[in-house]
Write a protein that binds this DNA or RNA. Sequence first.
DNA 1: AATGAAACCTGACAGC
DNA 2: TGCTGTCAGGTTTCAT
Length: 291
Amino acid sequence: MPELPEVETVANGVHARVQGRVVVSVWTSGKPQTFKSPEETIAATLTGARIVSVRRVGKTIVMTVEGAGRQAEFLIHLGMTGRLLVSAAEVPLPPHSHAVLTLDDGREIRFVDARRFGRLSVHAEGGARVGADPAKERLGDRLGGKAPGYRGPGREPLTISGEEFIEVFRRRKTPIKAALLNQSLLHGVGNIYADEALFRAGIRPRRQAARLTRGELTRLREGLVEVLRRAILLGGSSVSDYVDADGVRGFFQLEHRVYRRGGEPCLVCGATIQRTIVGGRSSHYCPRCQR
DNA sequence: AATGAAACCTGACAGC
DNA sequence: TGCTGTCAGGTTTCAT
């Protein structure tokens, strides 16, 4: 479900609704797969803590909390079908709810995830996942202990420079589509926005990343930033069940030019949009506009 | 080191 | 109505 624009929309929405509130109790579902940190640790970390901020890093929602003078981070990855909702307690708990944070004003933050590809974890100040092997954790910025925090696996697509972008992709021998989906390179780009960015840049998804020219990579970064910004403005894409913190759908799906349009005419040239598999993911492109 | 395929889950939808 | 097959916005793991 959720790529960068959707996660950004959810994080901003939740931030606006719950910043400064205190978590008074935590319930978790007991489905082991959902929890990357032990459920008791998540509950203990969040209970009694004040929510400092909610933001997006890559495709992960990062909730910073402060309790007993210590800061910690609650990481929420929505997977394919995860939702993070802020609801009145009277609203019935949806099926597939896996975590509920009750706030001091009675409202609830709910994590709902039918397919259970989503993941929850807590990280102590400094970035290590609480209750996990520190050697295996990606630590946050250790600059004097100032604003450490989760950094994500890769670079931010919206802020990476043109030169850095070229550097990230120039040696990759995989298809450019697969490279765009590799979160340890850029994080936040998923199947929709990879296809849409490649269309805007006029590049076929199967092209080997290392063989793209500097000009093509420049166009790709520009197309990607353009499509991500536009999607954030429209509240993301709702293809099947994506909703924001209030349960409201986004509108960017109405502006998809290739994603899930296989067999339909290209909006630019009229050629038939092709659907194929690249890097194990369905990929859509215009055979005339993209080379 | 890097690539690709399979696995992890449930639900929606098309076709018969 | 109900069955089967296909597909899904993501990541991790395992074999090659």
